[in-house]
């Protein structure tokens, strides 16, 4: 049964068609939710609420559960992000190897706090759970690229590569 959504659409018609295509592509495979969320993020760079509502209806999964999954993984964006997303690992190995100082250096260099975007829209600074490179702790990811064995003084040079 079709159930209308409450709010007027913010996504364009073609964007909504894209969402429906993604749902249709994965609908019948076992465990369709994560592949759908990945595909949506690849398409929109984040997970728009309206798209998640369509996923809830299309896959017949409660929206609360979808939001629970989407908010569990730090790699899913629930809001539009800046051009580059910096994810500083906050798990224990990075922590004991000096992640705190690296994160402070990032905050100082960017002029933002964790969770914020720079005013020019270039960088979003976020924390992440383990990114799986404990051998080179402390580490950060910028977009898909990993930077390890960091010290605070290395931060400006790394950021400069994205300017």
């Amino acid at each position: 049964m079709a159930v209308a959504t409450k709010k007027p659409s913010v996504l364009s018609k073609s964007a909504l068609a894209k969402v429906d295509q993604i749902i249709a592509r994965h609908k019948d495979q076992p465990g369709p939710l994560l592949p759908v969320l990945h595909a949506l993020q690849a398409e929109f760079k984040y997970l728009p609420e309206e798209a998640l509502v369509r996923v809830a209806i299309g896959l017949d999964i409660p929206l609360s559960k979808i939001y629970g999954v989407a908010s569990f993984y730090t790699l899913f964006n629930l809001r539009p992000k800046a051009e580059h997303v910096i994810r500083a690992c906050e798990s224990a190995p990075c922590h004991v190897r000096g992640a705190k100082e690296v994160i402070e250096a990032l905050e100082n260099a960017l002029g933002v706090k964790v969770g914020e975007d720079t005013r020019d829209g270039r960088f979003t600074l976020e924390l992440s759970s383990c990114i799986g490179v404990c051998g080179v702790a402390p580490a950060i990811m910028i977009d898909d690229e990993v930077f390890g064995n960091l010290t605070p003084d290395m931060v400006p040079g790394i950021l400069a590569r994205f300017n």
């Binding site: 409660p62 939001y67 569990f72 730090t74």
Partner: peptide
Amino acid sequence: VGVLYPINRG
């Protein structure tokens, strides 16, 4: 009904 669920992590 399913309106409540754990969100975020850790």
